[in-house]
Design a protein around this nucleic acid. Structure first.
Lengths: 169, 169
DNA sequence: GAGTTTATGTCAGCCTTGTTGACATTCCAA
DNA sequence: TTGGAATGTCAACAAGGCTGACATAAACTC
């Protein structure tokens, strides 16, 4: 299995990696890994009165400063009411700034304030530290495969959004 | 980067895969992929009055029939009150059976009923179908890397649980 | 045998974060 | 000028986390 050619089946390519057992392992790996993935930021957020939803908003505002509410909605996949509640607290607490659009004054463009950027840095440092350790342990080839499978797992629309973000919009 | 040896740095091994940009991509890939990962079962569950928590309980009871409540608690990482609410509804609805332990009568051993197994099959078929497509698209080597990185991302305790499940307890 | 610990269940209350529905405002575009 | 898009907000609700408190039964320990 390690060379991808073990026990040739159906035209010379192994399909052993597609057994239900392999798939179940992948499913459980996703479940347990996602717990680790969110654990560190969650601990930081728990101290303040914030949750994972705040982290997500902060992450993507930092990622694309000046993004509109609608754009953020499509990225996060929640209702505007749900997002609005989160944004409201972030704006009230002075972590996010909402500027009325110049071209289109209906739009609100979102930016992190200095304090917002500070929290973002704390959260993403914590998350990156774990990712870096995992990457280092697994090695470059594993990382390439990791991304390849994750990308293939996304809904087409999410895949498009992911690619846009990846390629610097 | 594709061969893992691009632009050698620090003793011949590339560390380009550890840049903040690479890490950020991995973080966003996890976010978007997890959405896809849960999307199909979520749609099935939404029709009934169940949620993701019920799916998780059903999955692991199916995975390890006869498991105790305490064991399930450690796997799921929630409080007994939270799990109990979910188990209560599953037992009341006749999807899960709770049997008093024979050796230790304090313990409750959990089993899926026929109806429970039927729902489990529907849910995991849906989830496996997406995983299978992703695996097939990415290829065996990518899948190996995928699992390697996910495993390295887990908390040590989760990693232990994952390995135990993987190796058939 | 008494006392302690363990496994479980349950009640009450709280929080975050998701949902739907309804409605108002602003303002671009045809 | 009118329709629709973008946004905000109010209200109500549900899932699924949480803590704290308490009860029970059984097992374990001294």
């Amino acid at each position: 299995m390690s060379d991808g050619r073990a026990a040739p089946v159906f035209g010379g390519e192994s399909l052993l990696f597609l057994t239900d057992e392999q798939l179940r392992q992948g499913i459980e790996a996703m479940f347990f890994a996602y717990r680790g993935f969110t654990a560190d930021p969650d601990r930081i957020l728990a101290d303040m009165h914030y949750g994972r939803a705040h982290h997500r908003a902060i992450h993507f505002i930092n990622r694309a400063p000046g993004t509109t509410v609608t754009n953020l909605l499509s990225i996060l996949g929640v209702t505007k009411q749900s997002l609005n509640r989160v944004l409201r607290t972030l704006i009230d607490d002075g972590l996010v700034e909402s500027r009325v659009g110049t071209r289109d004054k209906r739009e609100r463009h979102l930016y992190l304030t200095d304090r917002g950027r500070a929290l973002e840095a704390r959260l993403s440092d914590a998350q990156r530290t774990r990712m870096r350790a995992a990457y280092r342990e697994a090695g470059p080839e594993a990382v390439a495969g990791f991304k390849k499978v994750l990308e293939a797992m996304m809904d087409p629309e999410m895949r498009r959004l992911y690619a846009r973000l990846k390629d610097g919009k």
